[in-house]
């Protein structure tokens, strides 16, 4: 998918293979993977003579947004039932938190940041 996202035009299996220089993948493997991606709806394809040309169904950002917003239950459809670590807060609650942070940071060794 990364290869598909990086180009503006649609690509054939051969062209995708050529760009996957870092991994020694057989032509048939690339073909199978692209076929599966198309069947799952992540890639779209159209015939060009005897070959298929593939392009992504949506941009990478669209998928990332879908992934994160669903996970954080921000889409209004609360079916995913995933627990997230913490949500962002505002107002009085945020002040409580900032006071708490001062307490911890004041009371000794600061955390080793990266």
């Amino acid at each position: 998918m990364d290869v598909l996202w990086e180009t503006d035009t649609s690509l054939t299996v051969r062209e995708v293979s050529a760009r996957l220089t870092q991994r020694n993948l057989a032509h048939t493997t690339v073909m199978t993977v692209l076929d599966r991606l198309a069947k799952k709806g992540f890639a779209r394809r159209e015939r060009d003579g005897r070959a298929w040309r593939y392009r992504p169904a949506a941009t990478r950002e669209t998928y990332v947004t879908e992934l994160m917003l669903t996970a954080l239950e921000q889409t209004g459809d609360r079916t995913a039932a995933l627990t997230r670590f913490a949500q962002s807060v505002s107002g009085v609650e945020a002040d409580v938190l900032r006071d708490a942070l001062e307490v911890i940071e004041g009371s000794g060794e600061k955390d080793d940041g990266t």
Binding site: M68, L69, L72, Q74, F85, A86, Q87, S88, V89, S90, E93, A94, L97, R98, A100, L101, I104, E105, D111
Partner: peptide, 12 residues
């Protein structure tokens, strides 16, 4: 510390 930083980060 993790909780506080999360909570006070800018919300989506």
């Amino acid at each position: 510390s993790a909780l506080v930083r999360f909570g006070t980060a800018s919300p989506c």
